[in-house]
């Protein structure tokens, strides 16, 4: 599985196409794209991360998914830096022979990423700039796996 942490935008269609390019064993590709939402007048989101630990944690989460499901190819991209509403933040895409594994591996990766990848969001809006608080529901979502 490919893991990337970058400030640059990514091309979701190109990333999905690459997962099944030049092979005929892929029967299913499931993906999740997370976007910046303009809740309550939010104007920008700045993502800070811990270089080194981020890549290490994402690689560990990816290895767990590969050990558990028949993953033929996969891509995890997480952006950092300042993003505005509509911008994509994260992409998780999984290619597998069958849909159940693709859906489950994708969902597992997102739930674990939310609790293990060291990123922090600061929100800009009418309130100025504030740090986003962690949600207990994210921990619960990861626990179900």
């Amino acid at each position: 599985m490919q893991v990337r942490v970058q400030p640059e935008p990514f091309d979701t269609a190109a990333e999905l196409a690459a997962l099944s390019a030049n092979r005929s064993d892929v029967g299913a590709i499931a993906s999740f794209t997370g976007l910046v939402r303009a809740d309550d007048g939010l104007t920008a989101l700045t993502l800070e991360h811990y270089p080194g630990m981020t890549e290490r944690q994402l690689a560990a989460i990816a290895a767990k998914a590969e050990a558990r499901w028949p993953v033929l190819a996969g891509t995890v991209i997480h952006r950092h830096g300042r993003l505005v509403p509509g911008d994509a933040i994260v992409l998780v895409a999984i290619a597998s022979p069958h849909r159940a594994a693709a859906f489950e591996a994708c969902s597992f990766l997102m739930d674990w990423l939310k609790t293990k990848a060291p990123f922090w969001k600061a929100e800009e809006g009418p309130w100025g700039t504030r740090w986003v608080r962690a949600k207990a529901t994210d921990d619960q979502a990861a626990q179900r796996w």
Binding site: V90, L113, K114, A117, P118, K121, A134, D138
Partner: peptide, 10 residues
Amino acid sequence: VAIFPPITGG
């Protein structure tokens, strides 16, 4: 040693 708040990525 890194010290930080609960993470809020994704």
